[in-house]
Design a protein around this nucleic acid. Structure first.
Lengths: 110, 110
DNA sequence: CCATATATTCGACAATGTAGGAAAAATAGG
DNA sequence: CCTATTTTTCCTACATTGTCGAATATATGG
């Protein structure tokens, strides 16, 4: 059994993408956001699988969107981070912050 | 094949513990450092396994220490983070920083 | 209907997380 | 020397995460 509720690296990234995208978080968008921010080019399968697992744990919720008025295509599924997810995310960040504390000369300088 | 060289959450924690402990990083100490900093109580087995994998990838190196002058016990094995490990660690942090960018009201104030 | 454009779901397998107990050294005492 | 005891590492196993690529489901213009 999982010890508690710590998040994996990619889970954190996915959750953060949801926060950034707000009400427009669905597969392709999430993937693009991650690629843009981190340069990491993950597959859609990776994203859906991860989100599915997080949903099962109550960290995110999802809802089917209305049929797209665009060209064609299946209805989107929008994801949203839930309170437990935000808590876990914040906690993960704090853990890393404590481990990094006092180690960096110049923080995020690129 | 592993896509590149991203580190898992615990791998990052372990690597950071090595940096913090400097020349005194071995099993029990590493475990204590992690527990103290993060409140997370992992087993020694978890630590050795993780370090072993990181060593195989060239992220850390290790060397047997001199016989203990204490009561009894096997010789310690000291671990040290290597340049590739530091690079990967820094990169992981930067990735998370970019994902968190602009999201927190008050970051680490410690 | 059909070809095509989007999206999501499935099925698999690799990598990481994590424990617990066996095994290896080291040493004090009888 | 032998053994009980101590400290630390190593091995084995299994759960959870990371990640893909192919399969499947919907829409819609012709």
């Amino acid at each position: 059994m999982g010890k508690s509720d710590s998040l994996g690296e990619f889970e954190q990234v996915a959750l953060l993408a949801l926060i950034r995208l707000g009400s427009n978080a669905y597969g392709a968008r999430i993937r693009a956001e991650i690629a843009e921010r981190t340069g990491r080019d993950v597959s859609l399968g990776a994203i859906y699988t991860t989100l599915e697992r997080l949903e099962r744990k109550g960290f995110v919720s999802s809802a089917r969107g209305a049929p797209t008025p665009e060209r064609g295509g299946r209805a989107k599924r929008f994801y949203k981070i839930e309170a437990p997810g935000e808590r876990a995310l914040r906690k993960s960040r704090e853990t890393m912050d404590r481990m990094w504390e006092g180690l960096v000369p110049a923080p995020s300088a690129g």
